[in-house]
């Protein structure tokens, strides 16, 4: 649905551009293809890595690992799992909700959600292509630490 809208928008715009200014349309398509094919090898690698990870560290495996984990050790475990895995939100949130029902604590789940969103170990090589390794280390490192801060705030507001 969303993808269809994206296609309609992109090609509609391209069509209008072509009608107004062929040169511009050509330039846009050239730019699009060049940047796409230049980054594609890196995307392919990341997608393969994500496929591997989803297989051997599937949501069910994560659920088993997190289970009733609690305390600081549980937070550490969930933070690491969140940082290295890459799970789409529509899988992650129901997973988090069921983990809560299984007995995991709010703090552990909050850390998991935060690191899942902000820290990307598997996507780090791709990020480095665009931003360089220093940025990757700082952005991921800071966000990893701040995940614990966010979790503490959530615990204060929502309650453990």
């Amino acid at each position: 649905m969303f993808t269809l809208a994206l296609y309609l928008f992109a090609f509609g715009w391209l069509g209008l551009t072509y009608l107004k200014d062929r040169q511009k349309a050509r330039a846009a398509v050239t730019k699009c293809c060049r940047s796409f094919f230049n980054i594609f090898p890196d995307f392919a690698a990341v997608l393969l890595l994500v496929g591997l990870m989803l297989t051997f560290l599937a949501p069910e495996t994560i659920a088993r690992l997190i289970g009733k984990s609690s305390g600081a050790a549980g937070m550490f475990l969930t933070s690491v799992l969140g940082a290295i895995t890459l799970i789409p939100g529509f899988v992650a949130f129901p997973l988090a909700a069921s983990l809560l029902k299984m007995g995991a604590g709010i703090a552990q789940i909050a850390v998991f959600i935060s690191t899942l969103m902000t820290v990307g170990v598997v996507t780090a090589p791709l990020e480095a292509k665009y931003f360089g390794w220093r940025e990757v280390l700082w952005r991921n490192g800071l966000n990893y630490l701040f995940a614990f801060f966010t979790a503490l705030v959530i615990v204060k507001v929502v309650g453990a």
Binding site: F11, K24, K31, G51
Partner: peptide, 27 residues
């Protein structure tokens, strides 16, 4: 299955995104 669905998903979304970026670039 996982690898394939990953590729299918990204390859369906990326082309329009890059096209929109190209259009933004010229406009």
């Amino acid at each position: 299955r996982n690898t394939w669905s990953n590729f299918a998903e990204m390859l369906s979304v990326l082309p329009p995104v890059f096209l929109i970026l190209g259009l933004l670039d010229v406009w």
